[in-house]
Computed example of a mutant assay.
Amino acid sequence: MHQIKSKLLLTGAAVIVAFSFGLNANAARMDMVDVSNNNGYMSTAEYVSMRNEFGVKAVTVKISEGGTYKDPYAASNIANVQAAGLYINGYHFARYATKAQAIAEADFAGQTAKAAGLPVGAVLATDVESQEANNQTKTTNDRNNTAFMQEIAKFGYRSDIYTSGSWANNKMTIKGKTGWIASYPYVATGKNWYSTNHAWQWSSTAKFRISYGGFDVSQLNSTYYTADQKSSVKPTDPSAVHQNNQTANKHQQANSSAKWVKESKTYTLKTAVKLRTGASTSSSVITTLPAETTVKTDQAIIQGGYRWVRQPRFSGYGYLATGPANNTLEYVKISVSNTYYTVKSGDSWWSIAQRNGLSMYSLAHQNGKSIYSTIYPGNKLQIN
């Protein structure tokens, strides 16, 4: 890893409470939050609340994706996180499949991060969970990840790899004292998961008091994402931090018990996707469905870091991932035929989106609105 410690004061002032791992030892801690355009605009006040009431020490914001996408909230997130006195880092959602593409994406991510104000010395991680990476061998992914991280160092950023627990050391090598690993156990309490790695993301549905929606939260098992520094800044209410962390663990236990939901939809694939015997990347591959294949589904579920759908077949079912677990449809085009939902009394963007396997931002966008638009009973919303 590339340890660059110049200008570290720009990364933020605060590590909350002593960084001892004894704090709230029986519960997974909410040390770090990662945010993107899916979370919408995040104010300084929201980050201060995360710091003071939940013990958050660092925030990692989405910077870019592939070779063209720039997260529109990156600059405001970076500025507001720093204003709240938290350590700031960034991540790039990788789409590369070759070494040349990895270098090109690193140059794009580095330039985008600089323009958005990510300070020198921050971590700029590569988020490796795409279908492009899934289609590569472990050797190829290792080569591509190394090329990305070496190129990122030229911009003055430290680097790391984010991936799922099922991919770590299967789809790519994650050495000890490196890595940010996502794994959502049914019971987060009582075990320090991935203790030899920098960070463990243990929930994607954490709630914060004054922020809307669910958030990805991670426990830090080293000081890598806080620039190996400590600070005297502390939460205003340490007892609240303890209680809020305990509550988040209990909610994780409830939320992590994923259930299949009815989804009668027709999709057209925009990239080749593997059809499997079960809703897991470790399940056997039935076949690889090429781009432009039409797929009819009857159920959907969020589990194992992905959004999965079930396809009825002549004999049994096939399962395919439509995208990461943030509910986005990464690998499919819009449905062949549109389906609409009639708004009822008590509905919200959040409740309608959750019921139909969407993010509320995607739901609002495809209806030409924002999540701040008012919806009324009787309104018809496109839900596919």
Rank of each mutant, 00 (worst) to 15 (best):
Q253A: 15
A353M: 05
S43K: 12
T140K: 08
A83G: 03
F208E: 00
R51D: 01
G121V: 07
Y96N: 02
Q131C: 10
G213W: 00
V309E: 01
V309I: 11
S195Q: 14
M1N: 10
S20H: 09
K171R: 10
S239A: 15
Y224A: 12
V48F: 02
Q131H: 08
S348C: 12
Y184M: 07
K62T: 06
I4S: 01
E65L: 03
T297G: 03
S315M: 14
Y212M: 10
Q303H: 09
T339R: 07
N37V: 12
W180H: 01
A364T: 05
W167P: 00
L329V: 04
L124W: 03
K296Y: 08
G305S: 06
D71T: 03
I371A: 04
Y47N: 02
D347G: 09
K259E: 12
A13P: 00
D31V: 02
V120T: 15
A104R: 02
I210G: 07
A272V: 01
V217Y: 01
K230A: 11
L381F: 01
P312L: 02
A182C: 04
V332Y: 06
S345K: 12
A115K: 15
L363Y: 03
D71C: 04
Y340W: 14
T205S: 15
K191N: 14
K296E: 13
W349Y: 07
M42K: 10
T342A: 06
L220Y: 04
V261M: 14
T68Y: 14
E292Y: 11
A122I: 01
W193A: 08
A147R: 00
A100V: 13
N379K: 10
V261L: 15
A199T: 11
K234C: 08
G346I: 07
I181G: 00
T126S: 15
W350C: 04
Q303E: 14
P72A: 15
H2P: 10
P235K: 05
T277C: 04
S36L: 04
F215D: 00
V17W: 10
Y69H: 08
Y331C: 00
N255S: 15
I181K: 00
N192V: 12
G55H: 05
S280V: 09
K70S: 12
S337F: 11
Q243G: 02
L363K: 04
A291G: 08
T339I: 14
R276E: 09
W260P: 05
L320V: 06
V217D: 02
G40R: 02
A147W: 01
A122C: 13
A113N: 04
G22K: 14
A27D: 13
A188C: 11
P312G: 04
A325E: 12
S348I: 09
D216N: 07
T268G: 02
A100R: 10
Y340H: 13
S348F: 09
E263K: 15
K99H: 09
A94S: 14
V33L: 07
P72D: 13
M50S: 03
P185K: 13
N169I: 09
V33G: 01
A258P: 08
S222P: 06
V309A: 03
W167V: 00
G121R: 09
Q219A: 08
S239T: 15
P324T: 10
N367K: 11
H198P: 02
K230F: 14
H251T: 09
E132D: 13
G213S: 07
Q82M: 04
Y317V: 10
K7Y: 13
A109M: 05
A291T: 11
G278H: 07
S164K: 06
K62I: 03
